Simulated scan of single mutants.
Amino acid sequence: MEPCSGPGTLSAMDVTQEQQALREFAAERNWDQFHTPKNLAMALAGEAGELVALFQWLTPEQSKRIMDTTEAEQVRDELADVLIYALRLADVLDVDLSTALQDKVAKNHARYSIERSRDNAAKM
């Protein structure tokens, strides 16, 4: 599987190219039979849980500095696993992630206006 072309930025990542690479990776191993929406969603949740576990008992200050610790590689790996399963799930469900992201950001802009949300972490 070829890595994304951008140097560490999501905006530089070609989502369709990454999904194609993941599709081929799974097909070569005959994993499509296991990559059902249910299984991929559960795997995504599991990987998110592994990421959360790395932060579980850290103070807010420690969590900000985690990439300066020995856990940095684990954080990167778990983030990558979460992204892999999210990309694969979207591909299997034929969800256009670019459109979904743009739609969700627009909804968030409408739901969380600057006037009501600035310096306020409460969900409204």
Score class of each variant (00 low, 15 high):
P3R: 13
C4D: 10
P7H: 12
T9S: 09
L10P: 02
S11D: 14
D14Q: 11
D14M: 06
V15D: 03
V15E: 03
Q19A: 05
Q19N: 05
A21K: 04
R23D: 09
R23G: 03
E24R: 11
E24F: 05
A27H: 04
R29G: 03
N30E: 12
D32T: 12
Q33M: 07
H35M: 13
P37N: 06
K38E: 13
K38G: 10
K38M: 10
N39A: 14
L40F: 04
A45R: 11
G46N: 06
E47M: 00
G49Q: 05
E50C: 11
L51F: 01
F55H: 00
L58C: 02
L58T: 02
T59I: 02
Q62T: 01
K64D: 08
R65A: 08
R65K: 05
R65F: 01
R65S: 06
M67R: 03
D68A: 11
D68R: 11
Q74Y: 05
E78P: 00
L79W: 01
A80F: 07
A80Y: 09
V82F: 00
I84A: 09
I84Y: 06
Y85W: 12
R88T: 15
R88G: 04
L89I: 07
A90R: 02
V92D: 02
V92L: 08
V95K: 07
S98I: 12
A100Q: 04
Q102A: 15
Q102H: 12
D103H: 10
N108I: 05
H109F: 13
I114C: 06
I114H: 08
I114R: 10
R116V: 12
R118W: 12
R118E: 11
D119Y: 10
N120C: 07
N120Q: 07
N120F: 03
N120A: 08
A121C: 07
A121W: 06
A122N: 09
K123Q: 14
M124W: 12
